[in-house]
Simulated assay, not measured.
Amino acid sequence: MFAKIKKILNLGNRPKPDINLSGELYEQLKPFRLPFVLVQLFLLFGTLGYLILEDYDLMQAFFQASYTFTNTGFGSLNEDKFGTITILFTVLLMICGAGVVTFGVAFIMSVVNDGKLIALIKEQKMIYKIARLTNHYVICYHNDFTIELCRQFLKSHIPFVVVDNSPDFAEQAQKHKYPYYIVDDPHTQIAMLKSHLSSAKGIVSFSKNPADNITMIVSARLFEEELHRKPYYIIATANSQEEAQKLKKIGCDSVVSASELMAQRISAMAVRPDMENLLERFLYKRDTLLDLEEIIVPRYSWLVLKKLKEAHFRDVTNVSVVGLTQKDGKYITMPNGNTVVSSECKLLVIGSSESIRATKRLIVKKQKPREVDYV
């Protein structure tokens, strides 16, 4: 029966986060021990007292002690027949009950009003939600770039977690409707565990301080080595060309300069307004009629060392290969059918979003697909 209940509630398959806040929660709940211990001691004291002083069985004595101690009732068990000693004992129990309950409520309210316990409970809930994510991006540091990127990720249904250590970040995250966020220093190992970085696809570091971006990249690469997993795709911002070169040297895959991007976009709009509109319509949106994407050919792919025409991309998946970048960096524009596909090269293909997804599925197969044989 319990197994069925767990299956219905999906408790057995609930993903576990990389970090647990039970220790911190226990520290916050420690102050609750004293009021609960006092309540139990006085209930035990009252129950034993009534067992000795009156002709009660155990349940009657416990019932009498409970509603006397909590001052919630009187008169259920012939209290009018109490002797003097029992009356004095009852009065003492009432006074102790009023004092302990008042003290306990005040003590608990002070802990709750402190806000740390509520914040920990919310953070624990968020960590369990993040634990369900896979192939997500961890966006480090909250600023205007983060806000805009998160909007684009939400439109494109790309999962992400935002991490920042600002005191008011939780309010900002709720204001901008971030589905997943962590309040912590992004470069720390605790933040990496909370953001479920072990299952992430990549990292975006948006700090305006170059030192923060450097620390984030180094920390991510070290964390990656500890896990013995494939490299993260790391993107960072830079304010200068010199800064961009430093970031690439320490392991950043792509460096973005806001001023350089803006200049390129404005230049494109001024020189080729029609081309800029085409890019806006087809390349920067998800699930459009036309898409352009690079696909890496893995070493185990059936297509390795085959001629490009043997894949029959145009007939099978309705895409066209408009470029090929070899592993050594050499780029071939508009490769013909006799071009040999090398291991770990990149194919630049153009087609619909669904066609490109079908092409990816075709390329990653180890054995030559049957649909290609029938063309």
Score class of each variant (00 low, 15 high):
Glu260Val: 14
Ser259His: 13
Pro273Thr: 15
Glu276Phe: 12
Arg272Trp: 11
Leu247Trp: 10
Gln245Ile: 10
Ile235Gln: 08
Ser259Asp: 15
Ser259Trp: 09
Ala236Val: 12
Ile266Thr: 14
Gly251Ser: 12
Ser240Pro: 04
Leu283Val: 04
Leu278Lys: 08
Ala270Thr: 09
Asn277Ala: 10
Glu280Lys: 05
Ala263Gly: 10
Thr237Ser: 06
Thr288Ala: 06
Arg272Cys: 09
Ser254Val: 15
Gln241Trp: 02
Ala238Gly: 08
Met269Pro: 01
Cys252Glu: 07
Glu243Leu: 01
Ser240Trp: 08
Ile235Lys: 09
Leu278Asn: 12
Met275Arg: 11
Leu290Ser: 08
Ala236Lys: 02
Asn239Ser: 08
Gln264Pro: 02
Pro273Gly: 14
Ala270Met: 08
Ala258Gln: 15
Asp253Trp: 04
Arg286Asp: 05
Ser257Phe: 01
Leu278Glu: 14
Glu276Cys: 04
Arg286Pro: 00
Leu290Ala: 05
Ser254Tyr: 15
Ser240Asp: 12
Asn277Ser: 10
Met275Ser: 13
Val256Glu: 02
Ala268Ile: 02
Leu247Lys: 12
Val255Ser: 01
Ser259Gln: 13
Met275Pro: 01
Ser267Asp: 12
Leu290Met: 10
Thr288Glu: 10
Lys285Cys: 05
Ala268Val: 04
Ala238His: 09
Asp287His: 07
Ile234Val: 15
Arg265Ser: 07
Ile266Trp: 11
Tyr284Cys: 03
Leu247Pro: 07
Asp287Ser: 07
Leu261Gly: 07
Tyr284Gly: 04
Ala258Thr: 14
Leu290Asn: 04
Leu289Ser: 15
Ala238Lys: 04
Leu278Ser: 13
Ile266Lys: 10
Leu290Phe: 09
Asn239Gly: 13
Gln264Met: 03
Glu260Asn: 10
Lys246Ser: 11
Gln245Phe: 05
Ile235Cys: 06
Asp274Glu: 15
Asn239Ile: 00
Leu261Tyr: 06
Glu276Leu: 07
Glu242Gln: 09
Glu276Asn: 11
Met269Arg: 05
Arg265Val: 06
Leu247Asp: 09
Glu280Cys: 03
Lys249Val: 03
Leu278Cys: 09
Arg272Glu: 15
Ala270Phe: 05
Thr288Gln: 11
Leu283Asn: 05
Glu280Phe: 03
Asp287Glu: 13
Lys285Gln: 15
Met262Gly: 15
Ile266Tyr: 13
Asp253Ser: 14
Val256Ser: 01
Glu276Gln: 14
Lys285Asn: 14
Gln264Val: 01
Glu242His: 10
Met262Phe: 10
Glu242Ser: 12
Tyr284Pro: 00
Leu283Pro: 00
Glu243Ser: 09
Cys252Lys: 01
Lys248Arg: 13
Leu283Arg: 04
Met262Pro: 00
Thr288Ile: 02
Ser259Arg: 13
Glu280His: 06
Lys249Gln: 12
Glu276Gly: 02
Asn239Pro: 00
Thr237Ala: 06
Lys249Pro: 00
